[in-house]
Write a protein that binds this DNA or RNA. Structure first.
Length: 252
DNA sequence: ATGCCTATTGTGAATAGA
């Protein structure tokens, strides 16, 4: 079973690239973030055989799960704060695997209320995915975590000091998820430094100065089945790309 | 450190991203 995650930075702006990519790769499940619309363009993907569950929002945020197989028990918000109106979390069961599409808050500027919002959101995520472990089933939490886990996950750690993506609180909260028993799938298979999933639009792609912030966290039952995890840089090299590129995980 | 670019809303310039 192949599951991919991709922050597309607007599904409408990315429609040609996304349709090309999904036809070329045919993942069983594709988790999308930042669809940036209230209404997902479902028809185009349905005609390729994909079922779609999503929670949209005007202009900002928005997450989706596209699946070649039926989805069960969809939830469309991260529990823990009914007043949180950002569309940043959706979860479903596909072929016995619990999958989530996560768009974790950026958190910048750190001096604003956005940073405590990010940390509170990570606390809610911790509480929720701790509960998922009790199901003792494979869980794959994919998405844009907006966290650079370690120095080797960026080109120049000094450039990121003090940034919400690299602050000790953010990295600590990500590490806490791992300490619950969730495995960073890409890192487990690729210990080498300088693998990236995001490059800004200011020339960092050309210089290959990126950051690794899109991740799959796997429950023990999913990690036992982990055979492959890769970053597909091809969509980032195209015309009018997203600033993120897909990560694909394979479970036996 | 900031925002060189991109996207959205909506039709000009502000907001957000990371």
């Amino acid at each position: 079973m192949r599951i991919a995650t991709w922050n597309v930075n607007s599904i409408r702006a990315r429609l040609p690239i996304a349709l090309d990519w999904i036809q070329a790769q045919r993942p069983d499940v594709l988790l999308l973030q930042e669809i940036k619309t209230l209404e997902f363009p479902e028809m185009e993907f349905a005609s390729l055989g994909y079922q779609i569950a999503y929670v949209g929002q005007k202009s900002y945020n928005g997450v989706a799960i596209l699946s070649l197989h039926p989805m069960q028990d969809v939830i469309k918000a991260l529990p823990g704060d009914p007043a949180d109106d950002h569309s940043r979390y959706i979860e479903a069961t596909v072929e016995g695997v619990r999958v989530a599409s996560i768009y974790l808050p950026n958190g910048n500027p750190v001096a604003s209320d956005k940073f405590p919002y990010k940390l509170r959101w990570m606390d809610r995520l911790y509480a929720h995915v701790e509960g998922l472990l009790e199901r003792e089933m494979p869980v794959a939490l994919g998405g844009d975590y907006n966290v650079i886990p370690e120095p080797k996950d960026c080109y120049d750690p000094r450039a990121w000091e003090g940034d919400a993506l690299y602050r000790p609180e953010s990295r600590g909260a990500f590490r806490a998820l791992q300490h619950l028993g969730y495995v960073d799938a890409f890192r487990a298979l690729h210990p080498q430094p300088h693998y990236y999933t995001f490059w800004d639009y200011f020339g960092n792609w050309e210089r290959d100065q990126g950051i690794r912030i899109d991740h799959f966290l796997l429950s023990p039952q999913a990690a036992d089945r982990l055979t492959e995890c890769s970053i597909d840089r091809e969509p980032r090299a195209r015309e009018k790309p997203s600033d993120h590129t897909p990560v694909i995980v394979t479970l036996s």
